[in-house]
Design a protein around this nucleic acid. Sequence first.
RNA 1: GGACGAUUAGCUCAGCUGGUUAGAGCACUUGCCUUACAAGCAAGGGGUCGUAGGUUCGAGUCCUACAUCGUCCACCA
Length: 793
Amino acid sequence: MEKKYPTNLAEKEIQKYWEKEQLYKFTMDDRKIYSVDTPPPTISGKLHIGHIFSYTQAEIIVRFKRLLGYNIFYPFGFDDNGLPTERLVERELGISAKDMPRSVFIKKCQETISKYEEEFKNLWKSLGFNVDWHLQYETISDLSRKISQKSFLELAKAGHAYQKDMPVLWCPLCETSIAQAELDAIGRDAYFHYVKFKVEGTDLIIATTRPEYLSSCVALFVHPNDKRYKKYIGKKAKVPLYNFEIDIYSDAKVEIDKGTGIVMCCTYGDITDTNWQRQYNLPYKKLISADGTIDRDVLFIGGMHVNDARLKIVNLLKENDLLVKSEKINHVVGVHERCLTDIEILPSKQWYIDVLGIKDELLKMGDKIKWHPSHMKNRYIDWVTNLKWDWCISRQRFFGVCFPVWYCKKCGNVIYADEKDLPVNPLEDKPNGNCSCGNDEFIPENDVMDTWATSSVTPFINALYKESDERSYLMPMSMRCQAHDIIRTWAFYTIVKSYYHTGNTPWKDIMISGFVLAKKGEKISKSKSNVVASPSKLIEKYGADAIRYWTASNKLGTDTWFSEEDIIASNRFLIKLWNASRFAIMQLSGYTSEYKKLMPVDKWIIERCKEVTNNYIKYMNQYEIGLARGEIDRFFWHDFCDNYLEVVKERLYQREKHGMVAVKSGQYALYRVLLEILKMYSPIVPHITEYIYLTFFKEYEDKKSITTLIIRENKVENESLKFGNIVKAVLEQVRKYKTVNNMSMKAELDKLIIKGEEKYIGYLKQTKLDLKACTSAREINFISQEKLEIVIE
RNA sequence: GGACGAUUAGCUCAGCUGGUUAGAGCACUUGCCUUACAAGCAAGGGGUCGUAGGUUCGAGUCCUACAUCGUCCACCA
């Protein structure tokens, strides 16, 4: 073996080997299947260390399941359509989708995504991911579009997907409807304007942050128990500036203490307005257009942008003595998560999936899934409980999966595509046959689907990969992994779809990983330009294993922050592992698996190793990679390197002195324990462990990769563990003695007396030669007594 | 405003179902070039485990309140 581990060279070589041997290719056999639903990363920019962090944690679990003997189904995809991708393409090419024919824009999108997908894939490969790339999918591929459209058709036919003209969340910048999940809340400074309405000649003061809405004010609301305003209920009020009259109602939703306790209901200032408008059968008065400007027909402010309109109205109110005061406040505003534009509520015709009607069932689904860590389930419950809108799945955008839908030009009927024709593009394809009214002219559905409408069917894309049902039994899949930011989107939507299509959960377990923060509290994101170091540069500098080892040091679900020093610390480990293996393998020359008798100290390291293996398996099964790693680290570094290797060192160097029985025993233990250590580490640092395996162990194990070995729980013999502790205590005492006396570790001792329990004295006597060697004691005496005592003379 | 998480050595964090003198890595001090490893080895200093109560024979570990930080959600009158 090389004196230094050739990191970059070795990693590339190993990756090539895995690929050549097709080690991760999925084929059906009689083993139990472990299937993984892994996030198709959104093609919206570069991948950062946060992605590496969470994907690697999941990948480590998958490798561990391989060691347990499962048949692994581990596909990987890319989410390459939708608004985020459109924005990337627009940014990168300096174009705007609105300025060109849709087909031209889509072509540009396709060119851009394939470049990014190649880049992403190479990065995952350079981290050594044990993914079956034969199963690669893209959410815009024919197969994904087909499954996504099929899902839509099934839901539409069952009445779970419907089209309706009603108020919807609207982004005036992206000029599309959005779903509640794409809404973010940010704090904004604003003014509470106290405005004078008139009732029977007296002033009624109302506080509002959006005076530009005055023209679309359709009612006033007060609380039924509010003594101040009881007398006004049922009367009419005059809207300032516009001077039309509206009714005054009472409703328990009004908060007495907020503002002046009177609310103006506008179409539509917020979700409460939409409810009141429906409930009290109020008219709709248009204010805001799709592009965020005020409707042309609105007096004073028609055609202006909302913000300008607000200023204009405030000035007009001032001029007409209709403004009592303006109070500076900080309030929370709903914005579009992608562009941070303030969201408006506009009525429009959109496609929805019913989620409000199945909240209870969705909560039950949440209970059925095992969440890791368990408290992440709260976020799901919280989200489902607080849902206010059905899931709007139509987007007035360009690059996405089309709705398989046309409308009859004559009667307006909705015409659905035939399932056998999927995927269809209604803009290019025609429906089969005529409308039931006999007409043969159609208007295609122009909208595309929310990208989540497609990524929420990844289990189906995977399960039905071969267009037959042969994989349908992969549902529910064994495990979903993802970070906690997309619980309300990806996890939620996937559960919705799975519930509708199968009545069951999409997976058995969900593994939620944390984030990497650039510094305390600050999430790494492309837009915030705080990206620390590019993953590919880090891999080049430190190697994939060093980064992987770092990702394994954190508790699942917990955010961490990036520091290059941590990566350097993992390098220390890799060097240690290399050197220890190199030493052990050197001592294993002439190794055969036979031995006559196990020396007690060899028995100890084997038993201790079993104990560690058991704990390791226990923790890994709980997705506690950090605890599992800690368990092997302690064993490897301290028990194996610091103590065991020191004890057997001379025995293996000077074989004649110790005799072949003892040598064979040592070699046996060394071989078994080192291989077990490598196995346990292999999910975390697969390259170096495979490299060591191939250079030595492969010849004996007759398996082409460490990945194909099996790990098992074992019964542990406690007496050996206790004996090991005695040996460690002896070494500790001797080392301490030498350190305190400024002696070299090699310095000789005249006499060492070990007193201890009778049965361990027997073992100690058998270990006498080893002990003499590693303590450099000229003479060792053993005395039987209950308490352990070590005397150095 | 609601929920959840965190608060343990100078720094970053482990401490699972309560049980012997509270652990690791980094940093620090001292010693050691011991034929795998000086990016190493050995020894050591350093913590009244956020605060205040409570349960218990016994609490970092359970309960209650509070404080600080973080995250998610809600909040546009």
